[in-house]
Amino acid sequence: MQQDGLILELQKGNQKAFERIYQLYSESTYGIIFSIIGEKDIAEEVLQDVFMKIWDNADSYDSSKGRFFTWILNIARNASIDKIRSKSFKNKKQNLAADNFVDILESKTNFSASSDAIGLKKYIEILKPVCKKLIDLLFFKGYTQKETAEELEMPLGTVKTRNRACINKLREIVGN
């Protein structure tokens, strides 16, 4: 649920509002960043940067252009992509940033303390391979509809409808 009042408070520079926004969005943002970067410590750094950007640039969020979540999503993806393109990252972590969200979920075997993640992993396996691809590109990697269509060699309209079906499945899995 998007809380417009909370966002307005954030834009006014209310630190309490920032805390609440952090609680609401930091974990999912961390997931997005981690799926792109694939390295915990660096992802953590980027997460911090992203929330600083959210604080500094809250004014530039315009609700008529889209969801607040989507706005954060874009900041997080851009910051992560900037990071993996940076020289320091390329020098150190060349082989890492390859996993997609499914690989990440699958690697969360028995070590995971989060039962949610174990459950999610189990159910994500139900998703068709094409769904995994679509969600990875569109959600985690921030591809446009057109880029996704080219990447997966499917018509533009099909991307939209197939993805819709995939998200319906996901909604069943996560239980709403």
Binding site: E27, S28, F101, F111, D116, A117, I167
Partner: peptide
């Protein structure tokens, strides 16, 4: 939709959030 995607992203975040 947003809620489902957020939950998915949270699931992808590394251990011990």
């Amino acid at each position: 939709i947003e809620d489902a995607l957020q939950k998915l992203a949270v699931g992808v975040a590394p251990y011990n959030p």
